[in-house]
């Protein structure tokens, strides 16, 4: 994996603010992510975690604050955003594979069009990545022929093809049937073990406790608490954190019980 040679944080967010109309979604979020770190953003829906993630690669424009990702000042109007985004992988909830291209072409598209990598090289890299996400046999398939979990793994390979410095995952499993989330989470766990820097918005608390170096708890547009998962899960210092995590855990064990 492409580990950044720069020292210092890969992601640096200071006082990030965002409103949609009168609705204040982000009320000054600070977050720092070091190279190789895996940070999972958790919190109730509407707490701003997805909006914050989308501000990091400027799919959403923040109203205020400062964001530096992989060496690019994303909040500086002079920054060439397409160029900066090359180093920021993004995986969305609904995969959004290009429906008019084969699986392999989806993975090759970024390197080919953006980086002008020769076709042969892009193809080999694409095949390597498909092997890595366990989909070598699907390279000629069209996206609609795949299950949701397979599509999401292709989306991950497509993002990795750019050899990003950091990967952002926006609820990567919440559009999947419960029995398909495992394969996606396993793929992500492998990336974490390989040392990739990742920011993940997720409600999968068991995955988070296994993979995350740090949890950041969002509530009402702020990070109310952050720290290693084992500490937060055992003794959240904020009452709201504890309540939210307890609810997630009981819900997940209910789900596990019923699916058996």
């Amino acid at each position: 994996m492409n580990m950044s040679s720069t020292t210092g944080p890969i992601v640096l967010a200071e006082d990030v603010q965002k409103s949609f109309g009168a609705n204040r979604i982000l009320k000054g979020v600070d977050l720092t992510v070091a190279a190789g770190e895996v940070v999972v953003l958790m919190g109730p829906s509407g707490s701003g975690k997805s909006t914050f993630l989308r501000c990091l690669n400027r799919l959403t424009d923040p109203d205020g604050g400062r964001i530096v990702v992989a060496g690019s000042v994303m909040t500086d109007p002079a920054t060439n955003l397409p160029k900066a985004r090359r180093r920021i992988g993004f995986v969305s909830q609904h995969f959004h594979l290009y429906p008019h291209m084969t699986v392999l072409a989806n993975v090759m598209e970024g390197p080919r069009t953006v980086l002008r990598v020769p076709r042969q090289v892009a193809r080999e890299r694409g095949r390597d990545l498909l092997a890595r996400v366990g989909l070598s046999d699907k390279e000629a398939a069209m996206p609609w022929q795949l299950s949701g979990g397979q599509q999401q793994r292709v989306a991950i390979a497509r993002a990795l093809a750019m050899e990003p410095t950091v990967m952002l995952f926006d609820e990567p499993t919440s559009a999947l049937d419960p029995e398909l989330t495992g394969e996606v989470l396993d793929t992500m766990q492998q990336l974490a073990l390989d040392g990739l820097t990742m920011l993940i918005v997720s409600h999968e608390i068991h995955f988070a406790s296994r993979v995350a170096d740090r949890l950041a708890m969002f509530d009402a547009g702020c990070v109310i608490e952050e720290g290693p998962p084992e500490r937060l899960l055992r003794s959240a210092s904020q009452e709201r954190t504890g309540r939210f995590l307890a609810r997630l855990m009981s819900w997940e064990s209910d789900l596990a019980a019923t699916s058996r």
Partner: peptide, 11 residues
């Protein structure tokens, strides 16, 4: 989301 996916790889 198609546009966003394409923008996200730096297009």
């Amino acid at each position: 989301g198609q546009r966003e996916a394409a923008m996200s790889v730096g297009m």
